[in-house]
């Protein structure tokens, strides 16, 4: 590991000043960044520790729930307001990583974690995300964990987070602080597809800091579910995961939210499938139709063709759980 400086600026403003310099990286829980540094994937000159900033709160707002960027994944998953208003988020968080990691990992850090693509982590392998222009090791390699939606010729990696899939489904908004003040962007627009710049995971500028997320109030609490299909029962990334949220009234679906993990470079919202469910009864037949709609445009590689079958099956299964028709 390259030698680096470590600083802990007193205030948020001091942090914003510190990160303007190139070669700096923010460290919170460090559950991903430290691995990346040990593997030589990233080699910052300076780490800016933000763990002491007052960004841990989980508080109701006029029309939603604010969760501070430094709230721990474990704390959020057990928070009474989260469990009451957005149980889907709690389920998604508990599906992620291991209890030990969740005790360190923060909400902002979870959003910033990088793909777990093996070719990205291995500095002897080609990877356009790690080193633009070197090629994609996964395209013709072992791509069992890789994308079926939204990939490019440059990169077929997936975003590894469970929490982000839940937040994407719940229409969360990201609150970002920069030199010019705060800006808010929809969570679904925070991460980006690889296109020709897979080295850029998201739309956070280098001199910006995530300060929190806000989830608008909704009617999904009664009928939501997070399904994660993985190779072992804990501490494994999703082969496919589905966040499903339904607003059911009078036996019909008024609103639906669906997002998938393990299938794309970002949490993958299934807008067309959602639309297809509105006004319909929550039945297995309708869920299967929605799942098929969701699969339009999917493309598999040598080792991940099973996702073309597993993904729709999981969408349908998650919807059944959300609707309570299992």
């Amino acid at each position: 590991m390259k030698q680096f400086q470590y600083i802990r600026p007193a205030t948020q403003q001091n942090v914003l000043d510190a990160i303007t310099k190139s070669g700096t990286k923010i460290i919170a829980g460090g559950t991903n960044l430290v691995d990346l540094m040990k593997r030589g994937v990233t080699a910052p000159d300076k780490l800016v520790d933000i763990n002491h900033l007052p960004l841990k709160g989980i508080t109701p707002t006029k029309s939603g729930l604010h969760i501070g960027a430094l709230a721990l994944n474990s704390v959020v998953s057990e928070n009474a307001l989260v469990l009451q208003k957005h149980p889907l988020l709690s389920l998604a968080l508990k599906a992620g990583a291991s209890p030990q990691l969740r005790n360190m990992a923060t909400v902002g850090g979870n959003m910033m974690q990088r793909t777990r693509c093996t070719y990205f982590y291995d500095t002897t392998m080609p990877c356009n995300k790690r080193e633009p222009g070197t090629g994609c090791g996964a395209m013709e390699g072992y791509n069992r964990m890789h994308a079926i939606f939204g990939a490019s010729q440059q990169c077929i990696a997936v975003h590894p987070s469970d929490m982000c899939v839940g937040l994407a489904a719940l229409d969360a908004v990201v609150i970002i602080a920069g030199k010019k003040g705060e800006r808010r962007i929809p969570f679904v627009d925070f991460h980006r597809l690889p296109e020709d710049h897979p080295e850029t995971d998201n739309h956070l500028a280098k001199d910006e800091l995530i300060v929190g997320v806000e989830i608008p109030d909704n009617n999904f609490a009664k009928n939501s579910y997070y399904l994660k299909v993985r190779d072992r029962q804990s501490y494994a990334f999703a082969l496919v995961s589905v966040a499903a949220a339904l607003d059911i009234s009078g036996g019909l679906i008024k609103q639906a939210r669906l997002a998938m993990g393990g299938v794309a470079h970002k949490p993958w919202r299934l807008y067309d499938a959602e639309k297809s469910l509105v006004g319909k009864a929550p039945t297995e037949e309708n869920f299967k139709v929605a799942a098929q709609i969701a699969m339009q445009g999917a493309k598999a590689y040598e080792y991940n063709a099973f996702k073309l079958k597993l993904a729709p099956a999981s969408i349908s299964e998650a919807l059944k759980h959300a609707a309570g028709v299992v």
Binding site: S98, R116, T118, Y119, D122, T124, M125, G137, E140, G141, Y142, D231, R232, Q233, S234, Y235, A236
Partner: peptide, 25 residues
């Protein structure tokens, strides 16, 4: 243990990707 035969190298040489049973299993 998974190899990428193009390189003759493991692609899961760590405990995150080589899945030993966890307590939950």
């Amino acid at each position: 243990g998974v190899l990428d035969h193009r390189y003759g190298k493991y692609v899961n040489a760590n405990l995150g990707d080589y899945h030993v049973a966890t307590h939950a299993d």
